[in-house]
Computed example of a mutant assay.
Amino acid sequence: MVVDTDRCVGAGQCVLMEPAVFGQDETDGTVILLVAEPAEDQLDMVRRAVRTCPSEAILLPEPPTEHRD
């Protein structure tokens, strides 16, 4: 997972969703990534945080899905 602190507006929604994965800088409120690879039981809330981020500052690459013919 990657966060773009330049895009972050410090809304803090990610921290509210998953405080074990996201933190906020005390100076400007921008996102701090506490865990680069969230545990399986954290992924639902991390995905929700990605969707909720108003500045789209969080990128969570999803593994490719296999297509069956």
Rank of each mutant, 00 (worst) to 15 (best):
D41N: 13
L60G: 00
V31K: 07
T30I: 15
D44L: 06
R68Q: 12
Q42G: 03
V21W: 14
S55I: 02
G12Y: 09
S55Y: 01
D41C: 03
V2T: 14
T30S: 15
D69K: 09
V31H: 03
R47D: 10
L43F: 01
P19A: 03
T30H: 15
P61L: 08
V3C: 01
T27K: 10
E37K: 10
I32C: 13
P64D: 06
A20G: 14
M45P: 00
M1Q: 11
D4Y: 14
D25S: 13
V15Y: 07
T5W: 09
E62A: 15
D6T: 13
G10Q: 04
L59P: 00
H67V: 15
D6C: 00
H67T: 15
R7C: 01
E18N: 07
D4R: 12
L16A: 15
P63I: 10
I32G: 11
V31F: 07
S55Q: 05
D6M: 02
V46S: 05
R47M: 08
V21Q: 10
V35H: 04
V3R: 02
G12K: 11
L60H: 00
R7E: 05
E18V: 09
R7Q: 09
A49K: 02
V35P: 07
E18S: 12
E26R: 15
G29H: 10
P19V: 02
C8S: 04
V50R: 10
L43G: 01
P38C: 06
V9G: 02
P64W: 00
P38N: 08
V31E: 06
S55C: 02
H67K: 11
V50F: 02
L34P: 05
A57R: 03
L60M: 05
P54E: 06
P63A: 15
E62R: 11
D25P: 08
R68H: 14
E56H: 12
T52N: 03
G29R: 05
L60N: 01
E62K: 11
T65L: 04
D6L: 06
E26Q: 14
T52Y: 00
D41A: 12
G10D: 04
S55H: 02
Q13V: 14
T52D: 03
C53P: 08
G12N: 09
P61K: 07
M17E: 13
I58S: 03
V21P: 08
S55G: 06
E62F: 05
V15M: 06
V31A: 14
G12V: 13
E40C: 03
Q13A: 12
V3W: 01
I32S: 11
L34Y: 00
V3P: 02
D25V: 13
T52E: 03
E37V: 11
A39I: 04
D25Q: 09
P63V: 13
V31N: 04
D25H: 12
E37R: 08
R51H: 07
A36K: 08
G23Q: 06
P38T: 06
L43Q: 10
V35M: 05
